[in-house]
Design a protein around this nucleic acid. Structure first.
Lengths: 194, 194
DNA sequence: TTTAATAATAGACAGTGTATAATTTGACGC
DNA sequence: GCGTCAAATTATACACTGTCTATTATTAAA
């Protein structure tokens, strides 16, 4: 039908990502379908292909949206907390994964082909979450250990992620872990203690 | 063509899992195809469906094979090591993931539908790896902390997994981590120190 | 009003997992 | 050896998928 006057390109892109993210939340990565996204916003599959080029491009955009929401969620949950901010951060990490189960899982279910690397925008979105953790660690570490913060943030993100992942994918249920949040927090505290 | 005299049911199952695992190693979960497995062993797709019931059943069998090989690898790498066995264990965890990149990733790329749970055989295969870690921790913890070993093993498996996962999926490259193995080992040592 | 460029689509292609009906095969009793 | 019966295997159809190209519809510019 050609150009629709009320949908300039950036707005169309936004429509697709919004609907795609909604569908990722509902059905998850394995059952996600670009065609279904197109159908729901009243466009044909070809349009999505025109805008994002490939399936990978679409998924990266949707996962990027999830990362943005995650960062926002972490910031919101930390705002105004003056007590145990590290605990609050770990809690928020888990909470987001639980509430956004499928979209969160899609961040890790999707892997780029071996020869591709993620666009710079995606790297920035990951880094934004990382920076939040760095800031929290700087606030809690003694000044003479400030330069440890970035390396520690990377390691503790991985640590908390591992606990969250095993919670979400059922590994901890198999192994009989009943309080993964406490376990993750214990590892965080040890590392900060040094 | 009917029954083939040289392929009783268990042997056919083994053929399919072996070829499926080979293909998982080569192309990974996203490009894995049950039809291609059937073609390569000279059977039709229907046969695979008859033996495994569903796609999920086939993938679970293949991932179970990967878990068995992982356990064997860990045991082999620990055998005869009388020095720093914890370091050796963490090394072996990473090594297996690197060498069996795609098959290892498939363990986590694949998620059962929300309403299904893994068969007991799969749970046992996961537990077998867990038990290796428990034994190593018991050996290194003071006797009065022995009963901590299972909980600590769960948490440290998650910790090492998180570091390994971020290494394999590119997150650590984005964040500039250059020695994830050392970071993982540092977390392990802190936790053992208590 | 014609022209050029852009936006969007329709349709084809080669795949996929799933499912069922039909066929081939092997083993057993006679 | 022959016919029977059940098990093993396949052929085929279905409704999907992501990808891609040629075509059409629409808008803006000349």
């Amino acid at each position: 039908m050609g150009r629709r006057s009320d949908h300039s390109r950036p707005e169309l892109r936004e429509m697709i990502v919004a609907e795609g993210h909604r569908q990722m939340l509902e059905v998850g990565f394995a059952r996600f379908s670009a065609r279904e996204v197109a159908k729901r916003i009243g466009y044909s599959i070809g349009t999505i292909y025109n805008v994002f080029g490939t399936y990978e491009g679409l998924i990266l955009a949707i996962n990027g949206r999830t990362l943005d929401l995650w960062r926002d969620y972490l910031e919101a949950r930390l705002a105004g907390e003056h007590g145990d901010r590290l605990k609050r951060a770990v809690d928020a990490y888990f909470e987001f994964a639980v509430v956004n189960r499928h979209a969160w899982a899609a961040l890790y279910d999707f892997r780029l082909p071996d020869d591709m690397e993620p666009p710079e925008s995606y790297a920035r979105q990951v880094t934004a979450i990382f920076e939040i953790v760095v800031a929290e660690l700087v606030a809690v570490l003694p000044p003479e250990r400030s330069e440890e913060a970035p390396a520690l943030a990377r390691s503790l993100l991985a640590t908390v992620h591992g606990h969250c992942f095993f919670t979400m994918n059922g590994t901890f249920r198999i192994l009989g872990e009943t309080d993964p949040l406490a376990a993750a927090l214990a590892r965080v505290r040890e590392a900060v203690r040094g």
